[in-house]
Nucleic acid binder design. Structure first.
Lengths: 228, 228
DNA sequence: GTCTATATGGGGATAGAC
DNA sequence: GTCTATCCCCATATAGAC
């Protein structure tokens, strides 16, 4: 495999002079990359890594196949780049908890944020689920390092709350799993939920309702009063 | 496509006489079908419909590829047959609820049964999750009919309990989703859970612990006392 | 019943014209 | 930077030998 010096390189913010015109290098590149990553998210989320085809991604993006392979030299790199994108996006939205917080309020926030994520980024959620189900070949390292650390940190905070008698004594790690699973379900199992409820598509209030329900049950289950 | 008169036909329990020996027709067939379906479960669960290959299924089953295609005339039929198998298996294990039951006991049973399913049939759970995430192309009809009816029936029972003041007023359908999502999570996201908890593999007690945790929180969340 | 050989199509990836 | 043509491999599926 020959190394493509242009593909897979991040963008720079500089401008250069070429011929007579001043232009931002990579303007088109930037837009095409975005279109491709968006299309890849759809395709990979629906068919998994092996089931996805570059041809389909190209069609979804409205670009010729070779163009896609020009921007991302191969399928694996495209898949990785997509996850970098998603993880970065998640880190931005992300809200943390600390021992000083009110447990009820913090937990309620956590649930609402996660439900909102399911609403706004259902594809990302499904993609992630798909990757985990497949054995996390690409994300194994992330799970073992960043995610493990994240869970440990949050679990410690919850344990502090319990030790201080501010909530019922439940396993903190299991509690995190419970919030994850119950909230992601609305994105990952969307089709099932819609079919069972006989709906054509989700509305905003469905998510609000789900968030309320989960907050009610989980907080109460942890011996907490719902915050006003 | 020519119709294969042997492939995809169910077995019969009769015996016939051929030449001198009396033998059960399809003994080998039966065993091979099972081996193939087992292998298909692994392969499809890991890679989805499009990502799975017949070659891989054959290797997992320890049979030549053509042999696999002899028993299941094509990929789609093999995929369908596998789901028929799984749904039948689930229906067998399945325990129902009725308005006369004690809510706490019934809900606790439901949770424990589902966790046990995740433990015993993780592949089936992942397969199902994968199919739903992909938009349920094969199971859409099942979701729209059997599953919808099932949920409605159970939701009615739960609503009766609520109307009779035997548990807190929570949305019955959401409650079913909550039990589904939180219990299946242990099968579907196994890799993530193991990585986060820094474990090499699950043990029986992990599932017992999970079931206890979920029963604690969800029952309490529904204003119920845990049954002894 | 079982396996080999093969037809046919599509997939990823590259070379090179424009 | 962009797109066409093409290579090579692997997939499904079938025909037919054993």
């Amino acid at each position: 495999m020959t190394y493509n010096p242009v593909a897979d390189t991040p963008l720079e913010g500089t401008t250069i002079k070429a011929g007579n015109r001043r232009y931002r290098p990579g303007r088109i590149r930037e837009r095409n990359r975005e279109k491709i990553l968006q299309a890849a998210e759809e395709e990979f989320a629906q068919h998994g890594f092996r089931g996805a085809t570059i041809q389909n991604i190209a069609e979804r993006a409205g670009l010729p196949k070779s163009n896609v392979l020009y921007y991302f030299s191969n399928k694996k790199r495209m898949y990785s780049a997509m996850f970098d994108d998603i993880l970065a996006r998640w880190n931005k939205v992300f809200s943390d908890i600390s021992p000083e917080d009110d447990p009820a309020e913090a937990l309620s926030n956590f649930i609402h944020t996660k439900v909102e994520m399911s609403r706004r980024y259902p594809l990302a959620s499904r993609l992630f689920a798909m990757e985990i189900i497949q054995g996390a070949p690409f994300l194994l390292d992330h799970l073992r390092t960043s995610m493990r650390e994240w869970v440990r940190g949050r679990a410690e905070v919850i344990q502090r709350w319990i030790d201080d008698g501010r909530m019922a004594a439940v396993d903190p790690v299991q509690l995190i799993f419970l919030v994850w699973s119950s909230t992601q379900h609305y994105a990952d199992f969307q089709v099932q939920i819609l079919m069972v409820e006989n709906k054509a598509e989700y509305e905003k209030r469905d998510f609000d309702h789900a968030a309320e329900f989960l907050t009610d049950v989980i907080l109460k289950g942890c011996g907490l009063e719902k915050p006003t």
